[in-house]
Design a protein around this nucleic acid. Structure first.
Lengths: 140, 140
DNA sequence: CCGGAATATTAGCCAGGCTAACTTAGTTGT
DNA sequence: ACAACTAAGTTAGCCTGGCTAATATTCCGG
C-alpha cells in the first residue's frame, strides 16, 4: 500500500477536481475567457496560422475559427495572409491584444502568487518539486 | 530566486494548463460527461437536494436543474420530495445510475493509474507529497 | 490541366455556464 | 390570521466553447 498507483490515482483525481474548480473561480469575470487568453498567449511570439493554433490548443479547426472571429471582433487580433500560400490565414496580435494579454497575465499571476504566499516555504518547495512530475503526466 | 512565489506561480500556471488539456483528453468519449460524473458522485451517499448539489459544484441553481434534467432523462437519477418541506426536490441515484457511476469511476481510475505507472517510484512519492499542498490551494 | 490533398470557413448541433422572471411553499410580524 | 418577505426550484433566453459535415479555395503531382 505504500506505493500503490491505483490509490494514488484516486487521490490525484480528487485533487484535480479541486483544481478545476479553483481555476474556474480564478478565471471568472476576467476581460477575456480562459481559452481566449490561451490563444492570445500563442500569438505572443508572432503570427501563426489557423491549423497551428488549433493543434496547439487541441481543438478542431472550426472551433479555432470561431475563437479567432471573436478575438478579431474584439479588436485583439488581426487576420493576415501568407504571400507564399493563398490558402493559409495568419493571425497576429494587435497592439490592443498585446496590452490585454499583458494585463490578464499580470492579474492571473498575481492571483496565483497570493495563493502561494499563503503556503509555507516548505510547502512551496514540495509543490515546486512535483511540477515536473505533473508536467510529465499524459506525455506517455 | 530560490523561493519566489511569483516565479512559482508562472510555472504552476503552465502545468495547470497542461493538466486541463490532459483531463479533456481523458474524459472525451466517456458515457457520461465530466460534470455528470461529478454530480453522480455527489449522490453516492444518498439523496441530496438541488441547492446542496449546486453549491457543492459551484454552479447556480438553474444550471444544476438542467444537469439533473439530463441525468433524469437518461434514467440515471430520480427526483423525489422532502415530506417535511414541499419546496425542496431531492435527487437520488437509480440502480442504473449507480452502475454507471461505478463503471465510469473504474475507467477513470484505470486511465490515471496507467499514467502513474509510467512514473518512477520516486516520482510518485514526490507527487503524493504535493497532493495535500495542491488541495490546500484556494482554501485560503 | 485535372484530380486529389490541404487550408479555412460556414452551418447546425450539443453541453454547460449565466441572469432574469416566475411559481410555489414556508416564515414572520403585527 | 394574514400580508409581506424569504427560500427552493424551474423556465426562458443568452453566451461560450466544443463537435461534425459540407463547402469554397488553393496548391501540387502526374
Amino acid at each position: 500500500m505504500r506505493d500503490d498507483p491505483t490509490h494514488l490515482a484516486e487521490q490525484v483525481s480528487t485533487v484535480l477536481r479541486h483544481l478545476v474548480l479553483l481555476l474556474r473561480r480564478t478565471v471568472a469575470g476576467q476581460p477575456v475567457t480562459s481559452q481566449q487568453y490561451g490563444v492570445l498567449g500563442s500569438l505572443e511570439g508572432g503570427p501563426r496560422r489557423m491549423t497551428e493554433l488549433a493543434e496547439e490548443h487541441a481543438v478542431q479547426l472550426p472551433t479555432m475559427t470561431v475563437q479567432i472571429n471573436r478575438l478579431e471582433d474584439a479588436g485583439l487580433v488581426a487576420r493576415g495572409s501568407d504571400p507564399a500560400d493563398a490558402r493559409v490565414r495568419t493571425v497576429e496580435l494587435t497592439a490592443e491584444g498585446r496590452d490585454r494579454l499583458r494585463a490578464v497575465r499580470q492579474a492571473r499571476i498575481a492571483h496565483l502568487t497570493r495563493e502561494l504566499e499563503a503556503l509555507t516555504e516548505d510547502e512551496r518547495a514540495t509543490l515546486a518539486a512535483a511540477l515536473p512530475v505533473l508536467a510529465k503526466l499524459g506525455r506517455s
